[in-house]
Each structure stands twice: as C-alpha cells, then as structure tokens.
C-alpha cells in the first residue's frame, strides 16, 4: 500500500495551527496575569505569530501538494518557509537594530518564495473553468510573482540600508536618492499588489460560482488518446476530460490547457 506523507500533511498543519493559536492565547493570559514579564511575553507572541504565518503558508502548500498541483514547487515552499521561520525567530531573539536590515535582506527571499508558493498553490486548486478564467489565473500568478520580485529587489538593493550599503558602495548622493527609491518601490508594489489581489478575488469568486462542468465542453477539445491504466495496467483508448478505466473504473481526468 502506498501511503505518501503528503496525505497527512494538511491535517498535521491544521492541528499545528490550532495548537499555536492555543499557545498564543496562553501567552496572552500570561501577559495579563504577569505584567512584569511583558517584554519577554511580547517576544514570545511575535515568535508564535511567525509560526502561525508559516503554518498557514505550509498548509496552503500541503493542500496543493495533496491535489497534485506543482508538487516540487509546493515542497520547496514548505521547506524554504521553514528556513525563513528559523531566521525570523533568530532575528527576534537577537533583536539587534544595527544589523536589522541584514536580516531583512537575507530573510525576505525565502519568505517571499514560501508565500508565493502558497498563493500559486491556492490559485491552482480549482479545476479549470472557462478559457478567460484560465488566462486570468495565469495573469494573476504572474502579478504575484512580479510583486514578490519587487519586494525582494526593493529590500535587497535599498540604497541606504541594503546590499549596496553593505558592500561599501555608499555615498550621500545615494542617500539623497533614497526618498525617491522608496516612493517608487512602494507605489509600484502597491499598484501591482492591488491588481494581483483583485485578480485572485475574481479567480476564486468565479471558481465558487461557475460550475466546472458547465463550461468544460466549450473549452476542452475532446480528443482520443491512448493510456495504460496506472492501477490495473490495461492499455486502452480514452477521451480527454473525465474518463474511467474500462477494467478497474479508476477515474482519470486528462485535459489540454
């Protein structure tokens, strides 16, 4: 019997999320009961919130992984997210303001990768609807990828605090440029973020209200193809769309996007 770990992962993540929420409540109660420990409690709460965010991203990736959506990328999202989580917790523990931006520069890449994988996984979860819907989904994924790239670039190459400052390429002119740099980066990020969120909203809204079967006929070209059933091995001709094995009734959906 084949029993892949991905089958359990979503359940595991959900339990972990529930556990972290209980832990946050416990820490809050501690903060109320023991006000003199507030600073330590604040650090704990921040670390727990990081864990909660990571678990949400891992949960999204795990569900997509379960459904067979880009398995390698989803696994990378879970693994890279774990690295980012460890980094953020370390940054929270050391809490050194002088090297704050170094942490940001290093950690923004894995954080953005994990978040992007979660969003891509969730966007790929619904079955294909109409052609326009699939195009919209592609554009939305592209916008999210662009947004992630802008955030990473903006932080890493920040003229005053980023990689340029670290390498010693730093002068007052650069410093003067910072205002404009930040304005352009934030505006660009905001506009692309708005468009990406709007796209994601439409993708999920359409997925919720358009039944896949209604539009399937119009978008899928019905073609005959040959396949060997992965369960019973029977070699047979099948049709694109949902079909089932003549021998063992295994349901197989093959669609040309």
């Amino acid at each position: 019997m084949v029993y892949p770990i991905s089958m359990k992962l979503s359940k595991l993540c959900l339990w972990a999320i529930a556990g972290t929420v209980v832990l946050i409540i416990g820490t809050y109660v501690l903060a109320i009961l023991l006000p003199f420990y507030q600073f330590e409690v604040r650090q704990f709460v921040i670390a727990e919130i990081y864990i909660l965010f990571y678990l949400c991203a891992a949960f999204g990736c795990a569900v997509a992984l379960e459904k067979g959506r880009l398995p390698r990328l989803m696994r990378s999202g879970i693994a890279v997210g774990a690295i980012a989580l460890v980094g953020w917790i370390a940054e929270n523990i050391y809490n050194d303001y002088s090297v704050e931006w170094v942490w940001y520069t290093i950690l923004i890449w894995p954080t953005n990768w994990a978040s992007l994988m979660m969003i891509v996984g969730l966007l790929l979860l619904p079955e294909p609807r109409a052609k326009w819907w699939m195009q919209l989904r592609r554009i939305t994924i592209g916008l999210f990828a662009l947004l992630a790239a802008i955030i990473c670039y903006a932080i890493t190459f920040h003229p005053r605090e980023g990689l340029l400052a670290l390498t010693g390429i730093y002068d007052s002119e650069m410093w003067l440029l910072t205002g404009g740099y930040e304005e352009i980066a934030s505006k660009l990020g905001y506009v692309i973020g708005l468009l990406a969120c709007g796209g994601a909203l439409f993708v999920w809204l359409a997925a919720a209200f358009i039944k896949p079967k209604q539009d399937m006929e119009s978008i899928i070209e019905i073609t005959e193809y040959w396949l060997s059933c992965p369960r019973c091995g029977l070699q047979q001709q099948a049709m694109t769309g949902l079909d089932k094995c003549d021998q063992c009734s295994l349901q197989i959906r093959v669609q040309l996007a």
């Binding site: 999204g60 795990a62 569900v63 060997s228 992965p230």
Partner: peptide
C-alpha cells in the same frame, strides 16, 4: 475554506490502492 477540500476534512485517512502521484503512461492528446 481551504481545509474543506483537503484531507483535513476527512474523518478517516483511507489508504489508496495507488499513489495519488503515480506516473501514468499515456499518449499526449495533442
């Protein structure tokens, strides 16, 4: 809503007779 469509919403995790990520030998429909 995400958990609703996942294995986290299944009371029993049932073993599959084949892996969900098994490789399939087929002809490209195109």
């Amino acid at each position: 809503p995400i958990a609703m469509v996942s294995h986290a919403n299944k009371e029993y995790i049932v073993n599959e007779s084949i892996s969900s990520r098994v490789k399939i030998l087929l002809e490209c429909p195109k």
